[in-house]
Amino acid sequence: MRLLIVTDAWMPQVNGVVRTLSTVAQVLREQGDAVEVIGPDRFRTMPLPSYPEIRLALAPRRALRRMADAWRPNAVHIATEGPLGWAMRALCRQRGWVFTTSFHTKFPEYLQARTGLPPSLAWAVLRRFHEAGGGTFAATQSLREELARRGFTKVRPWTRGVDLSLFNGEGRDEWAGLPRPIFLHVGRVAVEKNIEAFLRLDLPGSKVVVGDGPLRAALERKFPEAHFAGWRQGAALARAYAGADVLVFASRTDTFGLVMLEAMASGTPVAAYPVTGPLDVIPGSGAGVVDDDLRAAALAALACNRAVARAHAERFSWEACAMGFRRQLMPLGTG
């Protein structure tokens, strides 16, 4: 197979979409497929207003067409609904190519969090984008049900994975200088991650934030007792998880939350709201607690067994994720 993946979220961004796409591409290549990823790094870009670390491709259609023709794909997957996603969608429709898409981010809720705009218009735009394809991949049952309620008719399951060798629980002494228990948040320090809900919690011990973003400086000033560690990747990120006692996942708008699996694989249980993502991964697992009272969830998660959290994460593999992705791709000429 010669697969073309087009995505507006790509390196050097650090987020779950980039980790998912880069890992799936790597696994598929190891299995013998040819995979090309086209991201904003190959175009002139501009910073996303209020979020400069995210770069948007400028007028990408002509260059994107040349790149697609040079690659000669027999399957196309459009991962995001940004400038590159819309440009590739237009090219596919112009040529009668069937393509698949994936739903990674609840942009309507993100926009509402950032601007106060009602989400109904954004949902209509997203539905128009995805329904033009042959199938929309969604990570969890609750997300698939929500998309169906919102008029998406071609939704397909596509789970997530975790690197079980990297996130192995080594490094329990990582935060040795801080009072325990250690409550950890990992992700972009941005309004849509609802991180302030975590920082406001009355919890014993220490709060650690791994990540960076537009709200970091303001939150550091507002919550000086919290420890802001910046971005971490690879072994340093794995030690951050292993050294924590609970990962507090405060987001209400993520579609999955890879950080939950990474924490569990490290033996660290998760506390979260009962929303899409956590509801699909945590209940009944013994690997964490969901509750509308996030403080109660965080305190209850302290009692979770670390070995049980690790065992739950072992149910998720990147190989299974990649193979599930591949099975649902569609040849360009089929509908």
Rank of each mutant, 00 (worst) to 15 (best):
A271P: 13
G284I: 10
T268N: 07
S251R: 06
A242E: 01
A307F: 09
A307E: 15
G234A: 11
V259R: 02
L279S: 14
F228T: 11
A298C: 10
G234T: 09
V308I: 15
D292V: 01
G288Y: 04
G288S: 05
E262G: 12
A265Y: 03
S285V: 03
V281A: 12
F249N: 03
I282H: 05
N305I: 05
P269M: 12
V248N: 04
D293T: 12
A244C: 09
P274N: 15
T268V: 15
D254C: 03
Y241S: 07
A272P: 01
G286N: 13
A296F: 12
L261F: 11
A296Q: 15
L302I: 08
V290T: 15
P269N: 11
L247T: 08
N305C: 13
R306G: 15
V259W: 01
T255S: 01
D280V: 14
G257A: 09
P283H: 14
G267R: 06
D245V: 00
L294M: 12
R306Q: 15
A300H: 04
V290G: 03
V246D: 12
F228V: 11
A242S: 14
Q233E: 13
P278F: 00
G243M: 12
D280Y: 11
T268L: 07
A236Y: 00
G257N: 08
A307H: 10
A226T: 06
V270H: 04
A238G: 00
V270L: 10
A235F: 01
Q233W: 00
R252A: 06
Q233C: 00
G286T: 13
L279K: 14
A238K: 01
G284T: 11
Q233D: 08
T253D: 09
A244I: 05
V248L: 04
G277K: 00
W231H: 14
F249K: 00
T268M: 08
A303S: 15
G230S: 10
A236D: 12
S285I: 04
T268I: 11
V270Y: 04
V275I: 11
A242V: 02
G288M: 06
L294P: 12
I282D: 10
R295L: 01
V308A: 14
N305E: 15
S285D: 03
G230M: 13
R295A: 08
A298E: 11
S285R: 03
D291F: 04
N305S: 13
D280T: 13
L302N: 08
Y273T: 10
D291G: 07
T268G: 05
A242L: 03
P274F: 11
R252G: 02
A287F: 11
T276H: 12
A226H: 06
M264R: 04
V289C: 12
T276D: 00
V281N: 02
R232Y: 09
P283K: 14
L299E: 15
R252S: 06
L247C: 08
H227E: 00
A298Y: 05
A238S: 01
G267W: 04
A272T: 07
G288C: 02
T255V: 03
G257E: 07
G286E: 13
G234S: 06
R306Y: 07
C304N: 01
V281P: 01
A271V: 13
A229L: 10
A301I: 04
L247N: 08
L279Q: 12
A229R: 08
D245Y: 03
P274I: 10
A309E: 05
V289M: 13
D245R: 03
H227I: 03
G288N: 05
